[in-house]
Amino acid sequence: MKLRLALVVLAIGLASASCTKSSGNSTGNNSTVRQSELARPLPGKTWQEYTEPSKNGYSDRVFFAYDRFDLDGDAEATIRAWAEWLRAHRDASILVAGHADDRGTREYNLGLGAKRATAIRDMLIALGVNTRRIRTISYGKERPAVAGDDEDAYQQNRRGVARPSTGGA
C-alpha cells in the first residue's frame, strides 16, 4: 500500500512536470500560472477505483445471455479495460468468478459458470495477460449478486466478476 502511494506521488509529479509545462503559458505576458487537477494515472489506481461503474464505461463484471457463455461487445470492451489494468499492475493476479442465474439445475450451472469464467480468461490471455496471473472459479447459481425471481435479477446474476487475487494464480 505504501509502495503504491509512493508510486502515485511519483507518477503525479512526473506527469505534472511534463504536462503542466505545455498547458502553462510561458511565453505570454500573462504571468499567472494556471493550475488544474489531473486524473491519477493508471498505475496508481486500485482495482476498486479502476472498476468503479459510475466513473467508467466498465465495471468489475461482464454479463451473459441465458444459458450462453459467449462475450458480447460490452463484455469485450470491459475485458480489454481489465487487461490494461493488468498491464499496469505487473505484480497483480486476478480471480475470475463465473456465475449463473437460478434458471438452471445446480450441477449444470457449475459447469456453465466454469465456461463463462474460462471465456473471460481466454480473452485476457489473447490480450497478452500471462495465464499464470489468472485464476478461475465457478459458483454456478450459489452466489447471486442480487436477490429476486425476475428477469432483471437473473440478468444481473449471469455474470463473470474479476477481482485481484491474493492467493496467486
Partner: peptide, 22 residues
C-alpha cells in the same frame, strides 16, 4: 463436482471442469 457412489460403493463418478470443459 456432481459426485455419486457406484452401487457397490467402490467408485465415485463425478464431473471435472478444466479449462472450462466439464
Amino acid at each position: 463436482f456432481a459426485p455419486r457412489f457406484s452401487p457397490d460403493g467402490n467408485k465415485i463418478v463425478m464431473s471435472m471442469a478444466r479449462d472450462g470443459n466439464t
